[in-house]
Amino acid sequence: MDAGLDMRTTGTKSDDSILSILRLIVQGIVSIAKSHWVTLVNFWRPTVCERYPHKDKSLDYKPGPGYKGDFALITDKEKGRLRCIACQSCERACPNHCIRVVPAGKGKDRYPAEFYIDVGLCMNCEICVEVCPVDALTMTPDYECSVHDPRDLIRNIKQLTERGMEFDEVSRVR
């Protein structure tokens, strides 16, 4: 017989004396009683699950300030325009090529006419945010991105700017 079967018969020491059978029965009862004791203890511990998405508003989860969620473009409040200078660094750096920037204007007035991010293709690596020379693109803690149609996952410049308006840049960890 091969090794696996030998171990089964010798390893568990099944000699047939009445004493060893009794000992086995007692051992079994004790170990199972212990297992039940553990489940009983855990019965009184607090629940950690949330009934997402049917959650209680008091339990509403807010991720930390460093969370890599949906994208936003930040508006320069003083100048009243987007910070983005349409340099397309993010577009070149993205490993999945999920960003498209259409620049407009020349020199200092260069701005993005269109800015698309395919969030469905994005893998939240934050490389685009890191390469941005003017800190115009950022990721926000918004994590609820589910939609019914995958085409809705393509963010355009309007959506990105709106999200940037609500974004708290000061506390962002990066």
Binding site: N96, R100, V102, L121
Partner: peptide, 27 residues
């Protein structure tokens, strides 16, 4: 299909910038 459509939304941009850069990355 979504990835097929995506360049069409923005059109021209990609083709000029970097011609067929990631054709071989096996998406």
């Amino acid at each position: 299909p979504l990835h097929e459509e995506f360049p069409e939304i923005v059109g021209r941009v990609r083709a000029e910038a970097a011609p067929a850069e990631d054709e071989r990355d096996g998406n």
